[in-house]
Amino acid sequence: MKEFLQNKFLRAGLLVSLAIAGVLSYYASSQPDGLEKVAEDKGFLDTAKDSVNAGTPLADYGITGLENERLSVGLSGIIGVIVTLIVAFAIFKTLAKKGK
């Protein structure tokens, strides 16, 4: 994991990702995405069911109980980046070792 602090390229990439997920995400378009829009227009959006984990604290990229929308989205994005980094790095590092 220390590579991400020591290596200039990795550090820059991680900072860009944190900025996108933590700050820029608030400004994302709130219009439905392609699939949701088609489902809505063509009339099958009503077949969608909530995930069983729809009530969990980070559901829908927010933090339950945090009123400030900017903070709620941004923090959930930062948590997502950190968890993704830990999981992905562990998997890829293990595979790289096994490949030797």
């Binding site: 990439g13 990702s17 820029l24 997502g80 993704t84 980094l85 890829f92």
Partner: peptide, 15 residues
């Protein structure tokens, strides 16, 4: 590979 994964996660938040 780890960084690519993180970047894609972050970028998918931007509609």
């Amino acid at each position: 590979a780890g960084l690519t994964t993180v970047f894609i996660f972050a970028a998918q938040m931007i509609n």
